[in-house]
């Protein structure tokens, strides 16, 4: 698939390579590796860098984490949030991309722009607007549908309400990726299936979907990683409430680290999320038949 490696031609190329590689290694070391090591060590300590507290606790933070009911609430919420939002992102993204790339669709650029617009809008701004839309007294949603629901203060509706906002915000990204995947499928395959008498569903299932597999894997994996770290919508819209109904794992990390200043405990939760992310990523690769 790739061309045979070509040896570097000139000294300037070597110099440029060395500069770029050095910069990246230093950058990753300072901003990624060192913080990860510090957080890992910190997860075994009572750690508050703001007043200099750093006392060894052993596994206490991890034990406390598993005994803390809010941790489990947050984990369950995160898995539900992740599964639902990823599913709808993929379904909506694929469906709309398929519709836009269809020969029957006119004004493709218009639709592509409209669907991508929420993705490039700042998340905090979107979350604030949706928070107002969900307001039970003057919110657009209740007024348009003639409802009297306090969406963000209902233990059963608050998390779905945040999910709907997130899906609306993010599906456009999947549309663009799936469109590029669909446009890269050679037209010969479709012509051959047409000659063989395949109907639209058979063509989609046997040709389009298998050829979109790399794109699908990319969308699913990046979505999982991204949604396991989601906390901005919750911070803006519900602050984790009502009660702890909309606590997500990353919001819990934020809350423990930057509100309660329990950096050690927050680091323990963050490491658990890191491991969970790795496990879910491997599972995704396995399910889709790709090597991790």
């Amino acid at each position: 698939m790739f061309k045979k490696k070509r040896p570097l031609q000139s000294k300037s190329e070597i110099v440029l390579r060395n500069i770029v590689v050095t910069f990246l290694v230093v950058y990753m070391g300072i901003f990624l590796i060192v913080p990860i090591i510090m957080a890992f060590l910190g997860s075994f300590h009572l750690w508050n860098p703001l007043n200099g507290t750093y006392e060894f606790l052993g596994l206490d933070n991890y034990i406390r984490m598993f005994q803390y009911p809010t941790f489990w609430t947050a984990m369950v919420n995160t898995l539900i949030f992740c599964a639902v939002v990823v599913l709808f992102r993929v379904l909506l993204g694929l469906g709309l991309a398929y519709a836009i790339t269809s020969k029957m669709t006119k004004h493709k650029t218009f639709f592509r722009t409209v669907f991508y617009m929420p993705t490039v809008t700042p998340l905090v701004a979107v979350a604030f607007v949706w928070k107002i839309m969900y307001n039970p007294q003057f919110g657009l949603i209740d007024q348009v549908f003639g409802l009297d629901i306090n969406w963000l203060y209902s233990s059963s509706l608050a998390l779905p309400a945040v999910m709907v906002m997130t899906i609306w915000k993010d599906f456009g990204y999947a549309v663009i990726l799936f469109m590029s995947g669909l446009l890269s499928v050679p037209s010969d395959y479709y012509e051959a299936s047409h000659i063989d008498g395949a109907n639209a569903w058979q063509t989609f299932r046997s040709i389009t979907l298998p050829l979109l597999k790399p794109t699908m894997i990319f969308v699913v994996i990046t979505s999982i990683i991204s949604y396991l770290q989601a906390y901005v919508p919750v911070m803006v819209m519900t602050k984790g409430g009502p009660g702890t109904s909309t606590y997500l794992s990353s919001y819990l990390v934020y809350d423990q680290a930057f509100v309660k200043y329990n950096f050690g405990y927050a680091s323990a939760i963050a490491f658990f999320i890191l491991i969970l992310t790795a496990v879910l990523t491997v599972i995704s690769f396995k399910v889709t038949g790709e090597k991790a």
């Binding site: 203060y153 409430g241 009502p242 009660g243 109904s245 309660k260």
Partner: peptide
């Protein structure tokens, strides 16, 4: 008082008011 008192009473209040605990 550390903020944990107010934070957790707020959560408790929401649980009582909205989650009917």
């Amino acid at each position: 008082m550390p903020s944990t008192l107010e934070d957790n009473l707020k959560i408790a209040g929401q649980d009582i008011m909205y989650n009917h605990k």
